[in-house]
Design a protein around this nucleic acid. Structure first.
Length: 392
RNA sequence: GCGUCGGUACUCAAGUGGUCAACGAGGGCAGACUGUAAAUCUGCUGACUUCGGUCUUCGGAAGUUCGAAUCUUCCCCGGCGCACCA
């Protein structure tokens, strides 16, 4: 118990506003706090980036605090300017509900939606969708354009003479109003959300006279500040299979190992400091990958994923889940590959053959003929694509 | 509405009548190296091909020309400036 509490307000946390003592005192006094995390339901899956604040929420839930997952179904329609490429997607109610269902399922490996202190789910369209223009104006009168321009994103756009639309200024206000509407004690989010969350803090102070606390979590990134998921390849979706999760963790750069342990596992910090120096990076990463899979699935699955991975990469064996393909005797290998989506075009196939990327593992020979016939056996294309061809 | 600049492949971005399937960068895909990676180096990155070529692409449509991503006209979309309205 003591141990959990020690890390509760430090581990994975980037900062706490107004300050750590503020929150610490509340908790020490035994107050049961209400704290929320806002998620814009733009996609069907949650990813590891969402999981970090959710994990912190779960720790708070276990301490008896009330936690709320807020679906930003209204804000999602506007699009957070944080993510500047995000097109304004109009989500239908139906899509939101589908996404929600998935979220709930995916999040339930971390937090509990049942029992004595269940996590609540709310929708911000409930209050934002009902505001009339007068109320919007009155809300907007709490912030100045200058305050908005403080935000790096906007500053940059001004410098680059790129447009900033008025509705984008409204985004932080809307997000801020969520806090007021739900009368929460605090909010949690990634530190990329700091600005929006602090907006809510200001609004709450002005409108409700209440001091809201804000916890910002570190982002999962390596020491050069490279965020994960920029290249989609290594962003772990909570809906990934154990094998995918394991593989993706293994493809992280070494610099991400320790942040990964801190943010995504339950191994005590003291232990982490000890192991930091004593293992070689690959073994460490394997342990991390296993831990992460255990959290979202279970230890058994994690073990299986590890074995599968070892077979594929370390020992260069054939993975068990190789796609099985049936082919006729007289077909060309190209056509078989093309038909089954292993390659996108004949040209691609040609390029792969010419660069020696396709190997028949049965005799360990590289395919060298562009228009050769099929032979049965297991083929490896590049490092990751495997298929088993059966001649019928 | 007026003026002006722009819309090029996954993204950014050259090219401004033939040498353009289109420079370069990022990304992606492969190969080498390795500790799985990353980094580095190398190759590839529209499709089809009997490997000679052929076909489809540069916002859209029409046109000029032997020949257009490149010129003209119209249209659609975006930036910036100005005006109008209030």
């Amino acid at each position: 118990m003591e141990k959990t509490n020690n890390e509760l307000l430090t581990r994975g946390i980037s900062s706490i506003y107004p300050n750590r003592e503020f929150l610490e005192n509340k908790i020490k006094k035994g107050e049961k706090l209400t704290i929320y995390l806002g998620i814009d339901p733009t996609g069907p899956t949650l990813h590891l980036g969402h999981a970090i604040p959710i994990k912190k929420l779960s720790e708070l839930q276990k301490e008896g605090h009330k936690i709320i997952l807020l679906m930003g179904d209204f804000t999602a329609m506007i699009g957070d300017p944080t993510d500047k490429g995000a097109a304004r997607k109009q989500l239908t109610h139906k899509q939101v509900m589908t996404n929600l269902k998935n979220y709930k399922k995916q999040a339930s490996s971390l937090i509990s939606f049942t029992g004595k202190n269940p996590a609540q789910i709310k929708f911000n369209s409930k209050w934002l969708g009902k505001m009339n223009f007068e109320e919007v104006l009155s809300l907007a009168s709490n912030m100045t354009v200058q305050q908005m321009l403080e935000r790096d994103m906007f500053k940059k756009r001004v410098e680059e003479e790129k447009p900033i639309y008025l509705h984008e200024f409204m985004y932080p206000l809307m997000q801020g109003y969520d806090s007021v509407a739900m009368k929460v004690d605090g909010e949690i989010g990634g530190n990329d959300q700091t600005f929006n969350m602090l907006c809510g803090r200001d609004l709450m102070k002005t409108i409700s006279g209440k001091e809201k606390f804000v916890i910002t979590m570190k982002l999962l990134e390596d020491n050069s500040g490279k965020k994960m998921g920029k290249t989609e390849g290594n962003m772990i979706a909570l809906s990934d299979t154990p094998e995918e999760m394991y593989g993706k963790v293994m493809s992280w750069t070494d610099g991400m190992i320790m942040p990964g342990f801190e943010l995504c596992t339950n191994i005590p910090m003291s232990e982490l400091e000890a192991i930091d120096k004593s293992f070689n990076p690959r073994d460490l990463k394997m342990r991390l990958a296993k831990e992460i899979v255990s959290i979202f699935y279970n230890e058994k699955k994690a073990k299986e994923a590890q074995e599968n991975w070892e077979k594929t990469f370390s020992k260069k064996e054939i993975p068990e889940d190789a796609q099985e393909i049936k082919a006729n005797k007289n077909e060309l290998l190209v056509d078989v590959f093309l038909k089954n989506g292993i390659v996108a075009s004949k040209s691609e196939f040609r390029r792969l053959v010419e660069s020696g990327a396709i190997t028949n593992l049965n005799n360990n020979k590289k395919v060298s003929l562009v228009n050769g016939g099929v032979t049965d056996g297991v083929y490896r294309t590049g490092k990751k694509r495997f298929c088993k061809i059966i001649i019928s």
